[in-house]
Design a protein around this nucleic acid. Structure first.
Lengths: 237, 237
DNA sequence: GAGTGGTCTAGACCACGCA
DNA sequence: GCGTGGTCTAGACCACTCT
């Protein structure tokens, strides 16, 4: 069985998720019962439950014993605090990304925001700076660091219309499986104010993140500055 | 079977979690294999896997196919972005909580940071203001709103040495099962500066959170101001 | 090859919500 | 009483890692 690459539970997850995002199931609707989903997709209950668990932890549904699985309202803000999805990211609909320069190969900054493994540190890193626009306004300025290990001709790829994570997944088979983040409120300096088109000394959210991947010992790091004056950053838990 | 109140997988989760926190298993250690845990606790693999899944999503372990479950390093900062735990919260070891006044029963602020259900809105709310100290310094100032539904003599309870969530769990059987949060960087005003003992116009993290509970239609709301000058706020995902 | 976690089946009984 | 989700068993085969 399972002649396809995708496991059953993941296929079901993607299927239901798409139907929720597309509005086939609307906020407050009841999903088919677990037993119904079993017959519909030809799988057993543990498999269905694995898919539904993922939807719950990604905030798409709520389960109520004796009633069923109820579709949750979709997040409206910028979903950046959680990964929210096995494959694709949420809230990326209105985000446009602009690369500040071609990615460069450098040594790691010292000190660095997270502890680096020996292999990572000696390999150097690919540095990639972006500004991301949300509904036309510059909201994020971020600096991304990738260990320079088996990345081939990474620096010459185009980034304009694709997410960084998508490229890693499609071209290198690297999936994000978790991570860690540190948050601070800071004041914008001259450079940051220019990037985000705000006055100096405005409060800005600073996130330092480590993304762990399916490749053992390989993590990606991001330092993200976010203008939250007009738009809060949103997360679920 | 299961003569105890706690399900098997939860018992195993709590057991392993305690051993990790207590240092029985240290960072980098391998947990016993899933099959070993089956024999040790007298349960089957799906049950063991359910417990391990919870430990993974709470950031205590990482799993590697073909190797085993590896204990993750314990978070060092203030873990507030995720709930991180089926029963108790993490990072609460050095936190001391101080109530600013006796909880009061009031009408909900209008407008409110989240949408309220009809039942919640007409019942009024219990308001509870705290300052929380981390290693002796005031780090959080938070305002909590609880719908005033079946809370009995809640306002007269003592809060000094117990977490708000603990009280709800023990006295009312209310468990936190998820939620939503909005983040912003703001500047401290006069009142906030006094509470957090900082200068005015300093950057401060503002979190607005909704905690969903096991009681249907019953959510708890918090507005939290956090001084991140000396201490980042930490989360996993 | 042996052991690990990843996926899956085919059942079972229980607690809860609703009519 | 019936259908729902919550928990659990006892197996099975596969992919991956290490030796």
């Amino acid at each position: 069985m399972n002649k396809q690459a995708l496991p059953h539970y993941k296929r079901l997850y993607e299927d239901l998720r798409k139907q929720i995002v597309d509005g086939v199931y609307k906020e407050g609707d009841l999903l088919p019962s677990e037993n119904d989903l079993c017959s519909l997709y030809g799988v057993t209950r543990p498999t269905v439950r694995q898919a539904l668990s993922a939807l719950v932890s990604d905030g798409f549904i709520r389960k109520h014993q004796g009633k069923g699985s109820i579709v949750h309202k979709l997040p409206k803000g910028i979903g950046i605090l959680s990964i929210a999805g096995t494959t694709s990211a949420l809230g990326a609909r209105n985000i446009k990304s602009e690369l500040l320069e071609k990615p460069t190969v450098e040594n790691w900054p010292d000190p660095f925001m997270f502890h680096l493994g020996e292999h990572e540190r000696t390999s150097g890193c690919v540095k990639l700076r972006r500004i991301r626009y949300f509904s036309g306004a510059p909201i994020f300025y971020d600096i991304n660091y990738l260990p320079n290990i088996n990345l081939g001709r990474f620096t010459s790829r185009s980034f304009e219309n694709r997410s960084l994570f998508d490229i890693l997944r499609v071209h290198y088979g690297i999936e994000i499986i978790g991570g860690e983040q540190k948050l601070r409120a800071i004041l914008s300096d001259k450079e940051l104010s220019d990037y985000l088109r705000i006055d100096q000394d405005r409060p800005v959210l600073h996130l330092e993140r480590r993304f762990d991947t399916s490749r053992p010992g390989y993590s990606i790091y991001s330092s993200i500055y976010c203008n939250t004056a007009d738009q809060a950053v949103y997360g679920i838990f």
